[in-house]
């Protein structure tokens, strides 16, 4: 444990902290571009959702499409009485 702390302090001295090493600088552009892509996907899904809801598209899942209740009387049963 003690040895580990010493090693860490040496790392600080050598500029090897995760946020200071030059590798993060090199990867910065790549990470920013990937972040922009992910933000774009989120925005696209949001925009499509808004449009679909505005158009009144049925967005319910397949298990909510048919609201049949097993114990309920069949459709048209009351009118036939």
């Amino acid at each position: 444990m003690r040895g580990g702390m010493i090693s860490m302090s040496k790392g600080i001295d050598n500029g090897l902290l995760p946020d200071s090493h030059e590798i993060y600088g090199r990867r910065r552009g790549r990470n920013l571009a990937l972040g922009a892509c992910l933000a774009g996907v989120v925005l696209m899904i949001f925009a499509v959702t808004v449009v679909k809801l505005a158009e009144g598209v049925d967005m319910r899942g397949y298990d909510h499409t048919f609201e049949t209740v097993p114990s309920a009387p069949a459709a048209g049963a009351e009118t036939s009485r």
Partner: peptide
Amino acid sequence: TDAAVTQTSPGEAQF
């Protein structure tokens, strides 16, 4: 190791 984390090839993939 630290070396494994910090050593990258000069041609590391960019976006």
